[in-house]
């Protein structure tokens, strides 16, 4: 139990996937322009990360490890995640159009997201149990969402600010991301696993 709580805290704050480990920077900068899209993307990431970690963990433990095929893990994980997301998208469109409207456009975006692959790879590398892997995946995704939503809030305000010409656009966004990352440095060393 203690380890699970530690996992949650560590991967939301201390080892935040975006701001401390620098995974998933592309959607972090690309989808953070508006709060609405940021929230939609966050939900989709939480959803996909949890499912893909579950399936890749099973694949790793019951197929790759017994047959001594660890060198295949990256290829196999990419294959599984991509087809899984596609499958979920197809099923979701039929079963729940409302949920599909909310998550639909973000799902294909996430298919090849490095953060999702990183969660799957780290979960087996750190030799977490199935439960621990799931908690790890959800916390990492929540950490990602936290960073994304904070960034979206800042960028919405930034739209109205008088930014000097040389810093407008991508420049000020990258500077903001850097300062945000510095702020998260404050959690460094608080807790480790």
């Amino acid at each position: 139990m203690e380890k699970l709580l530690a996992l949650i805290f560590v991967y939301i704050f201390v080892e935040n996937f975006v701001l401390m480990r620098f995974f998933g920077i592309c959607p972090f900068l690309g989808v953070s322009r508006k709060m609405e899209t940021a929230v939609g993307m966050s939900m989709a990431v939480i959803f996909v990360m949890t499912i893909s970690t579950l399936v890749t963990w099973l694949l790793y433990t019951y197929l790759l490890e017994p047959f001594n095929l660890l060198y295949l893990q990256i290829v196999a994980f990419i294959l599984v995640i991509a087809s899984l997301v596609q499958l979920v998208e197809t099923v979701l469109r039929k079963i729940s159009p409302t949920l599909y409207q909310g998550l639909g456009i973000y799902l294909p975006l996430i298919t090849t997201n490095c953060a999702v692959l990183a969660v799957a790879l780290l979960a087996v590398q750190e030799e977490y149990s199935l439960l621990e892997s799931l908690v790890f995946a959800i916390s990492a995704a929540v950490g990602f969402s936290l960073a994304l939503i904070i960034m979206a809030g800042i960028r919405e305000r930034l739209e109205l600010a008088n930014v000097p010409k040389a810093f407008q656009g991508t420049a000020i966004t990258l500077i903001t991301a850097g300062i945000l990352s510095l702020a998260f440095m404050g959690f460094k060393g608080m807790l480790s696993i």
């Binding site: 694949l59 197929l63 047959f67 001594n68 095929l69 295949l72 290829v75 196999a76 294959l79 599984v80």
Partner: peptide
């Protein structure tokens, strides 16, 4: 095994 596992999953 490698071919079977990856091919099978695919």
């Amino acid at each position: 095994y490698a071919v079977a596992v990856l091919g099978g999953t695919g």
